[in-house]
Design a protein around this nucleic acid. Sequence first.
DNA 1: GAGAGATTGTTTACCAGGGCAACAACTTTT
DNA 2: AAAAGTTGTTGCCCTGGTAAACAATCTCTC
Lengths: 155, 155
Amino acid sequence: MTASQAKVMDCEDEGVGHGCMDDELGFHLRRSQVAAFKHFAQTVTVAEGITPGLYGMLQVIANTPGLTQSALAEAMDVDRSSIVKVVNQLVEKGHIVRDAVPADKRSYHLRMTASGKSALRRIEDAVMRQDRDFSAALSDAERTTLISLLKRLYR
Amino acid sequence: MTASQAKVMDCEDEGVGHGCMDDELGFHLRRSQVAAFKHFAQTVTVAEGITPGLYGMLQVIANTPGLTQSALAEAMDVDRSSIVKVVNQLVEKGHIVRDAVPADKRSYHLRMTASGKSALRRIEDAVMRQDRDFSAALSDAERTTLISLLKRLYR
DNA sequence: GAGAGATTGTTTACCAGGGCAACAACTTTT
DNA sequence: AAAAGTTGTTGCCCTGGTAAACAATCTCTC
């Protein structure tokens, strides 16, 4: 135990004062998200090599037939140029392919491969287990409440 | 309206399918946090030049006398080396100073300057307004519930 | 005390993720 | 046919984080 640790041990939480931030939703949102990300990294990412962002894209691609890169960018709320690298990663992993579109030679339709589909099923299981594990401190009802409150924040 | 947009318009949300992700807490946590960050950037950051991370550090420094950089790193859950740049920024802005510690010549005590304190009061107001504005879709009771649920996630 | 071992702040290199601007190829509109 | 818009892509930049190395300093152990 160092001197600095002892000095802050007499407060709540990690021992440091947070001031008025305890009333701020954004603060707790950020901390929760960081914790969720680390939990995800220690389970799904280490096992399947998939980050939360990649997983989200895989789900959107799997559930939206005829999705183009621009539409994916809009759905993910990021720039078109950011999509290129991610799609390249998923293609390299063999999860998806770029299908040429006869009607529009500029764009591609993103489509899951067979191995991508089975990989997604496997990853889904891991993610669901991870998510339940991460929210183990909450009852099912509390978890449902939390999700519905969060949804209303970003819509 | 492009063809791709029309193609996905027949689903819920932004029109893209999310698969089983609607049941995943981490997914909604991430989306909410991204939305909160963007809201913060468009208000506080543009007005005061302070990011959510910098604001959090300022609060911890203001509320923890005798805080060293290592203790701050531990409190923020980041590497010591990441702290250096951030502290430099806050020093350059004149918000804080590094106080030499006679008892330990290796470390510094981070302390708010007078102008830093008044700046923090101003920023606090802006952050609180921003936070209320961001969570305007929720009632006060719902907001309180949400915060207490989030707290239980990362502890 | 002397020396081995931690700790602190710092620098350097590195990587992930995203924004912005430019661009060629292509489509749509005028 | 020509102008204007869209799509995917590349290059460069910024932010923010990790990891390793290092000098200075403190602490523990013998």
